[in-house]
Simulated assay, not measured.
Amino acid sequence: MLSASQLADRLAEDAEAVCRHYLSSGRKAGNYWIVGDVLNSKGRSLYVHLAGPRKGRWADAATGQYGDLLDLVRETCGLIDFRDVADEARRFLNEPRPEPASSRRGDAPGDSSASRPPAERARRLLRMTHPLAGTLADRYLRQRGIPGASLHPALRFHPSCYYRDLATGRRTSFPALIATVTGPSGAITGVHRTWLDPDGGGKAKVEDPRRALGGLLGNAVRFRFPVNDPVPVMAAGEGLESILSLSHVMPGMPMVSALTANHLAAFRLPAGCQRVYIAADADAAGRHGIEGLSRRAQALGILPLVLSPELGDFNEDLRRLGSARLSDHLRAQLAPEDACLCVRLP
């Protein structure tokens, strides 16, 4: 079985073929492949080295993203877990899939689910969860200034969710906040896990306490989002806590958390949408998410409007400035016909 570096080297051996497959909207220009971004948009911001000592390396001048071709596979396919990225790379290279070792199988020792598709594993994980109310995850969100999280069916609690260290392969388990990722029809496509400190000290003390599993591209965690009815006005953003903070003071507006800036840019807007409020972080990746979704909205005849926090993000606004000031700040940014959707809480 090839290691991560070996997979990246194998992909780099035929970098142009990788680009033609995953970045088909781009073109070859000398020793580079030029394209708009990792979402395969037309443009010239992202370039991949096709020859020389940096063959297979890429960078996006607009967002600051960079990496090797294994990173490119991850971003273009909307994958999170390294195991899924490696499987996709092996599929492209026609490498055989590794047989899962007995100590690494499934979501628990002795389980055989590791060979299942990621979306199926995500649905299996959801079946092991409990309602959020009164759990450690509910208390965690309350500590973040979000008291009504248990009202959202998309949020669940797992008392002992397995966590795998990607460097060592070692497995442990922690309680976790589980968010359900769904597609336009409401079908479950994945989950997002936030591992928590069992003693109530916030997130678990691990290298990466947030990971997604399954299909994120075009999909999202949905809050107060009707499946079969038109959604004329909605809000979309990156992180769970940021969107939950907005939902706290705008309980009448359907919202989605796309979980990352790249997935925000690729979110599939619902039919009948007239206005979308885009709430993203103010860093380079956040701006990329805003610009990407704005372009998609405008192409569909949907008006994109940007919501900006006063501080770093909307959860920081809620915790440090309070819900009343957050509500006033947001109301000033809404279209007049939408101002009634923002309530002023004490």
Rank of each mutant, 00 (worst) to 15 (best):
G134R: 13
R144P: 01
R121Q: 09
A114M: 08
C161F: 02
Y162D: 00
R142D: 07
R171Y: 01
Y163I: 07
L132F: 09
A154V: 02
P131E: 00
A167C: 06
S150N: 09
P147W: 10
A154W: 11
L141T: 04
L125K: 00
A119D: 08
A133K: 13
L132Y: 05
D111C: 10
R164W: 01
S112G: 06
D138T: 07
L151R: 13
R139W: 12
P159M: 04
T135V: 05
R142P: 05
P159T: 07
S160N: 08
P175V: 08
M128I: 01
R156C: 01
T172D: 14
T129N: 04
L126W: 00
H130V: 09
A149Q: 02
R144E: 11
A122V: 02
P109H: 11
T129R: 14
C161L: 11
R124F: 01
R116Q: 11
L155C: 09
S112K: 12
R144C: 14
E120H: 00
A176T: 05
G110N: 10
P109V: 08
L155V: 05
A167W: 08
T135S: 15
D138C: 00
H152C: 12
L151C: 14
G148A: 13
S112Q: 13
L132S: 07
C161E: 15
D111S: 11
P117F: 03
L126G: 01
P147S: 11
D165M: 14
G169C: 13
R144S: 06
A133H: 04
P118F: 06
L125W: 00
A176P: 03
M128P: 01
L177P: 09
Y163D: 06
R144V: 02
S150E: 15
F157W: 12
G134N: 14
A114P: 06
R170E: 07
E120N: 00
T168E: 10
R116M: 13
L151T: 15
P153C: 09
G134M: 08
P131F: 02
S113K: 09
T129V: 02
R127D: 13
T129P: 03
R123I: 03
I146A: 10
T135L: 04
T135C: 13
I178D: 03
C161A: 03
A119T: 04
D138G: 03
L126F: 00
L166V: 15
P153G: 12
R142L: 14
G148Y: 03
R170G: 03
P153R: 15
R156L: 02
F157A: 02
G134L: 04
R123T: 00
S160I: 05
G134T: 08
G110W: 07
L155F: 03
S150D: 15
L136V: 09
S160T: 00
T168C: 06
E120V: 03
S150M: 13
T135F: 04
A137K: 03
P175A: 05
Q143C: 15
A114F: 06
R164M: 04
R121N: 08
F174C: 04
L141W: 02
L126Y: 03
A176F: 07
D138M: 01
L151E: 15
P117A: 14
D165Y: 14
F174N: 10
L126S: 07
R164Q: 04
D111K: 10
S173R: 14
L166F: 11
A114T: 09
T135N: 12
P118I: 04
A119S: 15
S113E: 13
G145F: 04
T129F: 09
R170V: 08
R139Y: 09
S150T: 08
E120L: 01
R121F: 01
S160K: 11
I178T: 02
Q143R: 14
